[in-house]
Amino acid sequence: MSLFPVPAPDQIGEPFWAAVAERRLTVQRCPACREWTWQPKPVCPACGSPDLTWEAVSGRATVCSWTTPRPPVLPAFESLVPFVVLLVELDEGVRMVGQLVGDAGDLLRTDGTDVTFSIGTRVTLRWRDQDGQWLPSWAVDR
């Protein structure tokens, strides 16, 4: 069994992972007040509408912060370190974390010091395959 902490979705999050399996990044949006919300929620926290829907996002984002986890890390990540985890703000306004990858979706094996980015750097969605699990990831715009 893979040590990778693959998600075990419940009803609220299942549509997210189903879309991810098709390499589509979706985020919940309220049909009533049009607010986006992340992470997954049962109802709209802005207006109370019970009918949140999953909508595709642009895949364009801006770096807000980042870190480089170093050992000791979860066993699944031991062979991957060092890598950079970005906090990005999607153009739709929600923030999420994801790994820094190259244009081909390859995990950049770096502690971040040799990669040109900073807070405010624009990034674009790429897809990375981790043991058969697609992961929404981010590459620096050129």
């Binding site: 419940d10 609220i12 997210f16 992972w17 912060s65 980042w66 986890p69 807070i119």
Partner: peptide
């Protein structure tokens, strides 16, 4: 837990320990 567990949307990317999240805040 189910996907309402916040860690499902962080742990897969390597944000698993309290220090990882705190580091992102500290960098800010």
């Amino acid at each position: 837990g189910g996907s309402s567990d916040q860690q499902h949307y962080e742990r897969v990317f390597g944000i698993a320990r309290p220090v990882d999240s705190t580091a992102i805040l500290a960098r800010l």
